[in-house]
Design a protein around this nucleic acid. Structure first.
Length: 646
RNA sequence: GCCUGCGUAGCUCAGUAGGUAGAGCACUUCGUUGGUAACGAAGAGGUCACCGGUUCAAUCCCGGUCGUAGGCUCCA
């Protein structure tokens, strides 16, 4: 028998007989985590039971590592599938991958799962876990695999095999009475999965195509320790508590009304305050950035959208035409065509570029009813929109300035984690989803990529997510508790300016077509505020808070003083009100806390006598007594600085 | 749009094995004038989402519509 040398990451190189498995190394080697659930052989995730036949590097991974956890999740999906097959033998299995911290498995079942079913499945999973069945993998030829899955009637698996590349090595994993086609790798036995929870069940289409069979999808999660599982479940609970739909109702920020229509939010006075603050911020930044503000109508003739390409590429997201005196009119889904019109309204010279137009335009998009979601997915939306017309030479600088503006906003809102995603076109969809001009696509995409690289911005790429007129940068941000949102967008339009015959006279006297950058750093107000609600959990920084200060008289006797203070604060531009109800001070404080008012000002006999205020900050019991003048100065500073409390 | 669940007072939710409904909070009035997370009492408030069917009788059963929730994207 020959020997091979194996470099164990973190432990050094040792000699082992050829054919040794990582599992055997694990049982003999000292210093490897007992929590190991999977390994990488030469950086490739590999089952622990695989025989090693040549020199290699082995890295052992536990469930705390990203890869280790993903394997655990994937294996738990299989465990669930086994439980489902035991309980409901007629079920057909399809696929069961892992996601971030979660997994799912799609089943074909005759009757959808209920909550009780999920509990039963979970119980069965525990049983199988306790049986501690070995998970064994073997390679099969295409014919063997096909006949095996045909025998057990798993026709979805047969479809999968038929679609696989011939070169693909087919693997099946067996754990007792359950065998699944799977690329793996997996953990060693069902007993390694003990801390899991099924989260929800819902419908999903086979292969995500709505023309296909509806399947039942069950989501779950799994961890290597009870503690981690609990932590994750608590995080989910915290996310629920921060749901913008819940807080939006509690703080009376917005609502939907059946008679108005789904996806058409109504902003209450409290919510409108937040919009006003965002607008004020954006206008300030845009003024500094050389933007000019414009206003355009909500309704426009179809001919404009024929020209822009919207009717060809975007019609399914537009409200149907309305007939006005025999002419088709549409609600505008985007502001760009109108801005193009404004650009074209007067001749432009290279001296006019970059020409930047911004607008708080309300757009209307027909989102499918099932996709509407609180403020995150709506049918009427106000965009923080602008279009920058520039020469090719100016493009990079303008593009980077826009990206930098995003960062400025992130800082203001205390957004610490974000990611840029460069969304590219899919050549397969040219002429359908995308304007058919492969050369320009390539060039623009390369330019954008270069601009991002030059600016030193980190980004990922995603094929098939571009806008119909050009590539885009989508910005993902993470809220304070780690929930991901897709907010801002930044797009390059190489085609539409040409269609609108937009030109500028260049230095050489020739007419040229400008490039157009679409940018919406705050996205839509709806989605952005939805994000802010969850990011801050409703505890807005002072400058955004709908109710900044509430004055609480200790008894009716001090109402007059309270109103005097209130008027003074309002005159300085502070949003203040007085709680003059005939309630005890404790009750007024409680209500103010629950309404998340930032600052409570308590006034009673002492304060009236000394002409002072007693300040109590939201969540902070400790208080200070100061003069009205000092208080005003202090909070105006905080407001004007747009300070975010730590 | 599709699948499944849900829709009772402004909010959160009970309830009715089919006989037109209840609590807490909020609201109004009265009493209380109270110093840091709920003062007491009384009152008002509902076409039980909407439309239709079954029934002597429907908030409850059946069908449809609307709204809403989870998902339908990360591909063995």
């Amino acid at each position: 028998m020959t020997n091979i040398s194996i470099n164990i990451v973190g432990l050094g190189t040792e000699t082992y007989p050829s054919g040794t498995t990582p599992l055997q190394i694990l049982s003999s080697a000292k210093g490897v985590s007992k929590e190991t659930i999977i390994c990488k052989v030469d950086k490739v995730l590999t089952d622990l039971s695989v025989q090693l036949n040549s020199d290699c590097t082995v890295q052992f991974l536990d469930g705390k590592s990203k890869d280790g956890h993903n394997v655990l999740l994937h294996s738990t999906a299989h465990l669930m599938a086994q439980a489902v097959k035991r309980l409901y033998p007629k079920t057909k299995v399809t696929i069961g991958p892992f996601l971030e911290n979660r997994f799912y498995y799609d089943f074909y079942v005759e009757t959808p799962f209920t909550e009780e079913d999920l509990l039963k499945i979970e119980e069965e999973m525990l049983k199988i876990s306790n049986e501690n069945i070995d998970i064994i993998h073997e390679e099969k030829t295409r014919e063997e695999a096909l006949s095996f899955f045909k025998n057990i009637g798993e026709h979805y698996k047969i479809e999968i095999i038929n679609d696989l590349d011939d070169s693909e090595i087919l693997k099946v994993y067996s754990q007792g009475d359950f065998t699944d086609l799977c690329r793996g790798p997996h953990v060693q036995s069902t007993g390694m999965m003990q801390h899991f929870k099924l989260l929800s069940s819902s419908a999903a289409y086979w292969r995500g195509d709505e023309n296909n069979q509806t399947l039942q999808r069950v989501y779950g999660t799994s961890f290597t320790s009870a503690k981690d599982l609990k932590k994750y479940l608590l995080m989910l609970e915290e996310q629920k508590k921060r749901d913008h739909r819940k807080i939006g109702k509690e703080l009376d920020l917005y609502f939907h009304d059946e008679e108005v229509g789904p996806g058409l939010p109504l902003w209450t006075p409290n919510g409108a305050v937040i919009i006003d603050q965002l607008e004020a911020l954006a206008k300030e930044k845009e003024d500094l950035g050389g933007y000019k503000r414009v206003r355009t109508p909500h309704l426009t003739k179809g001919t404009l959208y024929e020209k822009s390409g919207h009717l060809d590429h975007y019609m399914s997201s537009m409200y149907p035409a309305m007939d006005v005196d025999g002419t088709d009119y549409y609600m505008k889904p985007m502001n760009c065509p109108h801005h193009h019109k404004i650009y074209a309204n007067s001749p432009k010279s290279y001296r006019d570029l970059p020409y930047r137009l911004s607008e708080y335009g309300t757009c209307y998009r027909y989102e499918k009813s099932g996709e509407l979601f609180g403020l995150m997915r709506v049918r009427s939306m106000q965009m923080n929109d602008a279009h920058i017309y520039c020469t090719e030479d100016q493009f990079k600088e303008e593009f980077i300035a826009v990206c930098n503006l995003y960062m400025e906003y992130f800082k203001i809102f205390g957004i610490e984690k974000y990611e840029m995603r460069l969304s590219l076109h899919d050549p397969k969809d040219l002429g359908k989803k995308y304007i058919n001009n492969p050369k320009l696509w390539k060039k623009t995409e390369d330019d954008v990529r270069d601009a991002l690289k030059d600016a030193g911005l980190k980004f990922t790429e995603s094929v098939g997510d571009a806008a119909f007129y050009g590539p885009k940068i989508d910005v993902q941000v993470w809220s304070a508790i780690g929930k991901e949102f897709s907010l801002a967008t930044n797009q390059v339009d190489f085609a539409v300016p040409e269609r609108f015959k937009l030109t500028y006279k260049d230095l050489d006297g020739k007419s040229k077509t400008p490039l157009c950058i679409h940018r919406a750093p705050l996205g839509t107000h709806e989605r952005f505020i939805g994000f802010l609600i969850e990011h801050f959990g409703g505890n807005f920084p002072l400058w955004i808070a709908p109710r900044q200060v509430t004055i609480l008289p200790v008894s009716d006797k001090y109402n007059d003083y309270a109103h005097t203070v209130c008027e003074s604060l309002k005159t300085s531009g502070v949003r203040a009100d007085v709680d003059s109800r005939s309630e005890k001070i404790g009750s007024k404080i409680r209500d103010a806390e629950m309404q998340k008012v930032n600052i409570m000002v308590i006034v009673g006999e002492k304060e009236v006598e000394n002409s002072t205020l007693t300040i109590r900050r939201r969540f902070i019991k400790q208080q200070q007594t100061i003069s009205l003048k000092d208080f005003s100065a202090e909070i105006l500073d905080e407001i004007n600085d747009r300070r975010v409390p730590n």
